[in-house]
Design a protein around this nucleic acid. Sequence first.
RNA 1: GGCGACGUGGCCGAAUGGCUUAGGCAAGGGCCUGCAAAGCCCUGUAUCCGGGUUCGAUUCCCGGCGUCGCCUCCA
Length: 453
Amino acid sequence: MLHLYDTATREVREVHLREPGKIGIYLCGPTVYGPPHLGHGRATLVYDILRRYLEWSGLTVRLVSNITDIDDKIIDRANREGRPWEDITHKCEDVWFTAMRKLNVLRPTDVPHATEYVTQMVEMIGTLMSRNAAYATSDGVYLDVNAVPDYGLLAHQSLEDMLSGGGDREVLGAAEKRTPADFALWKFSKPGEPSWPSPWGEGRPGWHSECVVMSLELLGESFDLHCGGADLRFPHHENERAQAVALGKTFAQHWMHNGFVVDAEGEKMSKSLGNVTNLLDLIEHYDPRAYRMLLLQTHYRSPVKVGQDNIDASVKSLAGLDAFASRLAALGVATADGDVLTSFRRVMDDDLDTPGATALIFDTVRRANAAVDSGDRALAASLAAAVMTMCSALGLDLQAGSDVEDSAADLARQLDAARAAKDFAAADRIRGELQSAGYVVETTKDGTRVRRA
RNA sequence: GGCGACGUGGCCGAAUGGCUUAGGCAAGGGCCUGCAAAGCCCUGUAUCCGGGUUCGAUUCCCGGCGUCGCCUCCA
């Protein structure tokens, strides 16, 4: 059974399922106001790997991941560029899902939009008001964090400690708030801004409310797992939880957070630092599988450096796996080796130990290659099947060289003929042609094999 | 100021109180090959520093140095 580190309890523990065989997961999705960056890519890849693995394990997974399509940053950009805000959110969402498709990230089972749940959010805020956990000021409605006894559970800091720190940061709306840590549930709109009606005045929802409403509505109370990037731990997740607690509802049973993407100097890459490397650039310039490979070789909670050397190494390791897939495709269908798959489950169930899983894959590849060389085709086929099964469970599609053009296949046959005739000058010339056409050429006893470089 | 994470070989990156080693990339040697490619076998250099606990620490504890994150809206 799956064990994951739980941010709330700070320990690796079993993920307890409300309903055997089913898991409900909420993943905080993007705010659609700009191109996705590497951190977005990491989070979606990590949870895509989790989701695929769980489905492969036989669980029915309901993965709810929101799109935040109303937010200050969206409004700012719309004003700056003189465009309708919906124009920005629609376009950014398109770009987002196109990028995710290229990364082989499955679409979540549910993709709720914040703007579709404004009515429910207004209702929820009303309930919080009636419970005296929220109050209105001149610029909006705020949650009173003192209504939440264990506020700071995810931040692992007491309210007092949090308030004592923060240095020279500006606290929004501080003058009228009961406590500086109180956060906006509803923001009154200025003229010309997108707005929805509410009992307290026209406005728009604050950032944290949508996830509470949508997760509780789609997954229900005490749903199994809540996920997101480590930067969302506080304040976003803390504030989601605070609202649920203030409502008197049980929220997520388990909290999972993935680590940051850092640059070559080890600093977090984020928009606030202005050193973003765009996810779109990465998947345009490199095999999109390379990022998945890199993340698989890193534990999801560790920071990961994304740089030239790292990505190059992943591209090369993928080439080795592709060569393997191409080589072993000829062995035909076999039952995957059971011991290997048992080991695979063991490492994956241990806090999603994908570095262990990739080590297992490479070991199995080596064993399968050795079995081919020693003539044990049955063993090779069953090990190869295990490799393909594991890669598939991780969303890593190996390329077995099926996209070879007819002309290249022709040249490969000519190359064999030339070698058979010991016309090595011709053979070398043909190989050169194939290589300059972008193919890797392997001449073997069983004939020449070509695949895309 | 408060809370927390981390410092492993040429690079990336796991694991671990001693027992057999992570793994990938790079490097060297060998086998195979007409030559390559792919593959197989073998090899090297490592656990930030100083104390402590221990028969024994890279692993646990303390201190130091260094890097990073969070402390109200960034995946």
